[in-house]
Design a protein around this nucleic acid. Structure first.
Lengths: 327, 327
DNA sequence: CAGAGCTACTAACTCGTATTAGTAGTCAGG
DNA sequence: CCTGACTACTAATACGAGTTAGTAGCTCTG
């Protein structure tokens, strides 16, 4: 069973292929009689016509696909929301948003030409060579979403997250703050700016710099970090954790060390994982509304693709404190 | 700056466009002198030539893209591994694997033709009309990955997961088992088969049917469920939770109800979330090696795409018990 | 030395769509 | 009744690669 082409539709409707194209693309600069229009639409439906994306994008010079290149990030709730919102907003404007996992070892250059997208959105981690090739192919490239300059793209500075944690802890009277970083280098793109934000906030509040401990998401590492924090000459009384998993590891470590939370040690995470509220005690955290930054990015993508964007919606605050019992 | 085409490469190398195509596609049925080959490759490199995927797939009739349509599933560790492995295995065979989030409200039919894939992999949730259109366009469709018949595609029956939980609990001497289901209908595709597997295992072991409670991932729902299980005439002593989050909710509920785990109530989850090991007490769970089912699916995709698959690797067991302190 | 067989290429066509340039036919105005 | 404007279409072409059918030029063979 061969492919149904616009020529088949034309034959069935008794018109030219040109007319079929005009009708199906709803061209306002062409006048088509209602009878012809109905004949074409009817024929297309009867034959189950599906236009060839390849032919269309060959002819138009670009497709309506937006390719998002994802680094090998650990699973995160916020990222998932981000992707869903981006897909939704772009979809409403006629752009298809697809995601490509940048698997280590496979040169990206071999992968993306197949999709021939209108815009490539890279979440960081593109090589300079890849970036040049993409631009060389006449494709708009938005790169470094979560870099420092990425703030302009997503409208959200990860440093604000760390700052908000420190501000919350300081408001509760804490002056000696620890920062729970993560060892996994894949997380560095998020962890580093949050830590810098925490450090900056301490400076602004006149507090000493946070005591940083790096850990994996294990109870053993949590215990180790808690021992160092409490044994340190700084006498840390509150921990800003890079994310909720670090926060949970710290809670587990505190339990193992016999330290009472929040009386002896306060903890605040980031992500508002379902598991955070189920911890003992429930973890105070910062919810991160990914839809806000996704909408900001979407507008930029639409601009790059030359698509008229819908009127901007008012965006709520991106960060929200979710009180638990650990601060 | 206009696109660099194979004709530009031909001009630069002083040969015909046909020759360029032969060289770049490494056609074994054509004889090309080494001097010409080097000239073409050099010209392509100098100009930064990138072939047009649109033109290629128009000519060849299909692209080397595999489109995976994802339903609106809640974030899950296993799914992420699954996607990464699938991308990797298909990538090694020259297929590009992209993911499309099936956002509610946007007709899928409008989205996929743009990508023009060789194969569409749907994780369930395609309408019959969409399925028919995809097949109509001459595109191979693998659907219902996580349905009952999906077992044949991924090589893993979700029912086995529930069965393994019950077997573990029974081996520990439990006879009155509860099943912690989830309310969110988006999870039903996984929850239902696991529950059926648990029921089947109870039948086979001569145990009474599990007492099912549905809950959301909240401490309040956990408490509610625990109260019903312990107050029920069946005197439930062990819970098979649909996943780790349900397991964590049950643990939180047990704490609130003053019930000791595992002495008075045993709990086992599924997913081996990092948060599971950090819970109080650490949650016993079943790790789900998504790479096993991803590899099985990948071979099916390669077959559908007409690509010769690499020799099969031996696959380890897909399910593994991760002992915690809750059973 | 005619013809077969090989090497190393190329001209011309094809895929399915969108677009450009144009063509009949109708109608109104002077 | 001729011109210009408008309606409702169509023929032909372009997009960029892959493929088919060929063609020069050379060597080998009987």
């Amino acid at each position: 069973m061969a492919r149904v082409t616009s020529r088949d539709v034309a034959r069935e409707a008794g018109v030219s292929q040109t007319t079929v194209s005009f009708v199906l693309n709803d061209r306002s600069d062409q006048t088509i009689s209602d009878a012809t229009r109905q004949a074409v639409l009817g024929a297309a439906r009867r034959l189950g016509y599906v236009p060839s994306g390849a032919a269309r994008s060959l002819r138009k010079g670009r497709s309506s696909v937006v390719l998002c290149v994802l680094p090998d990030l650990p699973v995160a709730q916020a990222m998932e929301e981000f992707k869903l919102t981006l897909s939704g907003v772009l979809g409403e404007s006629g752009l298809t948003c697809v995601f490509l996992h940048d698997v280590a070892g496979l040169p990206l250059a071999q992968l993306w030409p197949d999709v021939h997208p209108a815009v490539v959105v890279a979440f960081g981690g593109l090589t300079a060579a890849d970036a040049k090739r993409i631009r060389n192919a006449g494709i708009a490239l938005i790169d470094g979403l979560f870099d420092q300059q990425g703030t302009a793209i997503t409208g959200l500075d990860q440093a604000d997250v760390g700052a908000m944690q420190v501000q919350h802890l300081a408001a509760r009277g804490h002056t000696r703050i620890g920062f729970g970083a993560v060892r996994d280098p894949r997380e560095a793109a998020f962890c580093d700016p949050r830590m810098r934000g925490a450090q900056q906030a301490c400076r602004e509040l006149g507090l000493p710099q946070p005591v940083v401990q790096a850990l994996d998401y294990t109870a053993a590492d949590g215990l180790d970090a808690v021992r160092r924090w409490t044994a340190s000459p700084e006498q840390v009384t509150a921990i800003a954790a890079f994310n909720d998993l670090v926060g949970l590891a710290v809670l587990a470590g505190a339990r193992a060390a016999g330290i009472t939370v929040p009386a002896d040690l306060a903890v605040i995470g980031v992500d508002n994982l379902p598991a955070a509220a189920l911890a003992e005690p429930p973890l105070t955290t910062i919810a991160f509304d990914a839809t806000v930054s996704a909408r900001t990015l979407a507008r930029r993508v639409l601009a790059e693709a030359g698509v008229t964007a819908p009127p901007p919606e008012p965006l709520g605050p991106a960060l929200r404190l979710i009180p638990g019992s650990t601060t």
